[in-house]
Write a protein that binds this DNA or RNA. Structure first.
Lengths: 172, 172
DNA sequence: GCTTGAATAGTCAAAAGTGACTAGTATCAT
DNA sequence: ATGATACTAGTCACTTTTGACTATTCAAGC
C-alpha cells in the first residue's frame, strides 16, 4: 500500500531535478525504476492538485506548429513541501503487503504435482521481472537505496520461490 | 499493489475453512498475519459482490436476544471459484511496490546528520513491526509460504536499514 | 499519397477503497 | 447503578485510482 503522500513525494521528487511536460512525466512513470506506480489519469489529477496547492506551476511552450506542451516545474514552496514530505516519509515505516502471498498461503490445498507446475509458471514471470531490474549500475543503486532494496526484494522472492519449488520437486 | 482478485481470493480463502460473521471477518482481517489489507467498508462491499456472484451466501443466526448475526459461508460454486482464482494467482507474478523506497531514493538531498536521525526513527517503527511478526511458529510459517516470505521481507528491510544507518554513522 | 506509429495533450465515467458514524446488547469493573 | 469496553451490524459520503477514449502533428515506410 502506498499512500497519497508517497505519490506526491514521488512526483515532487521527479520535478525537483528536472522540468517535465505531462507526456514525459508519464514516460518516466512507466520506467521499471519506479518503486511505486502512478497511472496516467492519476498523474494528471495529482499534478492538478499540486498546482492548486501552489507547489507546481506550468508554462506553455510551442515548437514550430507542433501541439503546444505544458512544462511543469516546482515552485519555491513546492521545494519546501518536498523537503517536508521527504522528512516525514523517511522517518515513517509503511506496513507493506505481499499480494502474491495470498495465493501462496493456500498452496497446500492443491495436489503437489499441480502446485509445482503453477509455481514454475510463476517463476518464469518472476524471472522476467528480475531481468528487467538487472540493468542498473552499482552507482545508481548506491545512490537510490529505495530502488536498491526493491531489486533485493524481487531477487529474494525469486530465491524463495526456487526453494519452494525444490521442496515440491522432492515431494513428487 | 494488490488487485481485486487477490482480495476476493483472500476472502474466499478465509471462508473456505470456516464460516464467519461480518464482525469476526473484520477481526481476522486486522490480524498481522494478513499479507494484504482489506478495510472494513471494502470487506462488506466485496462480500456483497461475492454474494451477487453466487459464491457466498448467508444465514441469520440469533442467540438469546443478542442482535442477530449473519453467518457467511461459501457456496459450491464459491469453492470452485476459489480454486480457479487460486490457480490463477499462483501462476501469476504481481509487480510489487516499495512505498518507503520513494523517500529513501531522495535521502541524498539531506545532510547526513539529519538523514541519520530520521533513519533511526524509521528503524524504531520498523522494529515494532518486526516484533509484531515474531510470534508465528515454524509450523505456521511452513504451511503459509506467503506469510513466511512477508516476514522475511520485513526482517530484510530491517537489516538493510541497519546497514544504511551504519554507513551514515561512518560518514559523520 | 496513405497508413501507421510515436509524440503530445489530457478527460471522464466508473470502480475501488476508506474510516468515521449510527445503532443496539452484553459484560465487567468501580 | 454507572460507565467503559467488547460484540454485533453495517452504511455512506468522500477520496483515490483506473484505463479506455478523443484529439492533433510529425516522421517514416510503402
Amino acid at each position: 500500500m502506498s499512500t497519497i503522500n508517497d505519490k506526491k513525494l514521488h512526483l515532487l521528487g521527479i520535478l525537483y531535478s528536472q522540468e517535465v511536460h505531462g507526456y514525459q512525466l508519464n514516460q518516466l512513470l512507466k520506467h521499471p525504476a519506479n518503486v511505486i506506480r502512478i497511472g496516467k489519469g492519476n498523474a494528471y489529477k495529482l499534478l492538478a492538485k499540486l498546482e492548486e496547492d501552489g507547489w507546481v506551476s506550468h508554462v506553455e511552450e510551442r515548437q514550430g506548429n507542433r501541439p503546444s506542451r505544458l512544462i511543469y516545474s516546482l515552485t519555491e514552496s513546492g521545494r519546501e513541501a518536498f523537503m517536508s514530505l521527504l522528512r516525514e516519509g523517511l522517518s515513517q515505516s509503511q506496513a507493506f503487503e505481499y499480494a502474491d502471498g495470498v495465493a501462496l498461503n493456500f498452496i497446500g490445498l492443491l495436489e503437489p504435482q499441480e502446485a509445482l507446475l503453477l509455481l514454475k509458471e510463476k517463476q518464469e514471470r518472476l524471472a522476467e521481472r528480475c531481468a528487467a531490474l538487472s540493468g542498473f549500475s552499482d552507482d545508481i543503486r548506491a545512490s537510490h537505496p529505495g530502488l536498491d532494496f526493491l531489486i533485493h526484494q524481487v531477487f529474494a522472492e525469486h530465491a524463495f520461490l526456487q526453494n519452494l519449488i525444490d521442496r515440491y520437486q522432492l515431494k513428487k
